[in-house]
Design a protein around this nucleic acid. Structure first.
Lengths: 138, 138
DNA sequence: AGCAGAATGCTAAATTCTTAGCACAAACCG
DNA sequence: CGGTTTGTGCTAAGAATTTAGCATTCTGCT
């Protein structure tokens, strides 16, 4: 059941583990929103720099292959090149390895333990999901 | 049920979101191991630099308050100042915000969907845990 | 004892990151 | 229309990060 850390290897060019401080912050803003203009990124950055600094970083991230842009009227909207589903799986695996000894079960348990918690409906849905998984024999 | 992003604010000095590329990689190695010497960190770093470069980074991380060291014979063993339980909660909340629209339920569902999957015993334990949580009325 | 390897403290240089300003264009508003 | 605001492309400088070497000490082995 342990997660193989080698499973997390990627092309270094778009490996999130190679992102610098600001690059990472920006990618997180964009994933949280799904897509974002420079102004929208700027609004959400911790310790925000200037608008032109944000644009410069976005261009760099595009140059590295992490982002592409579309035009929306006069402005650019940036999207991640790695689909969200893939990016979050990568992030989950990394977190399981770093903080949960490779065990997804421990990670699920920790999620269930968070204070601001899953409500009854969510727990019911999850219980059903788990029951389904058990029926499928996995 | 949405996670409040403001819940993630920390003293900027030890805020993981402020870690640079290499600092973050090193912190992840140390959390994965629980504690580590410079040599052990070096073994696990992607694109590893020299031993002395690793030591210099460890000293910096100690100076910033992220690590402390103990002596183990002639060598130093480094430990994170933020306990693992706290660090992983921070990481989980951040991930839920970035990739799961603030919903822990979505995160749990994604974990359940990982390929290399929870086995039957783990599913049973989680099902019990969920049943307990539902009995407690939360 | 002598030597080689492992360790620390320290320093500075190389490299990378981050920032913001300029010139120009486009869009908006009175 | 004119002035202001918002946007892009581009550049370079300052700041931060990363790297590794030196001097010294300690440890282990022959």
């Amino acid at each position: 059941m342990a997660i193989d850390p080698n499973h997390m290897e990627h092309d270094m060019g778009t490996d999130p583990n190679q992102l610098s401080r600001r690059e990472r912050q920006i990618m997180e803003v964009i994933y949280a929103r799904g897509r974002a203009t420079a102004a929208e990124v700027l609004e959400r950055l911790p310790d925000p720099p200037s608008y032109s600094a944000v644009r410069a970083m976005l261009r760099i991230l595009e140059g590295k292959g992490h982002l592409v842009h579309e035009s929306d009227g006069p402005r650019y909207v940036f999207l991640p090149t790695t689909p969200r589903e893939q990016a979050r799986e990568t992030a989950l695996r990394g977190m399981i390895h770093t903080f949960f000894g490779g065990s997804p079960e421990n990670a699920v348990a920790a999620l269930l333990d968070l204070d601001d918690e899953l409500d009854a409906d969510a727990l019911e849905r999850l219980a059903e999901r788990i029951a389904d998984a058990r029926k499928e024999g996995r």
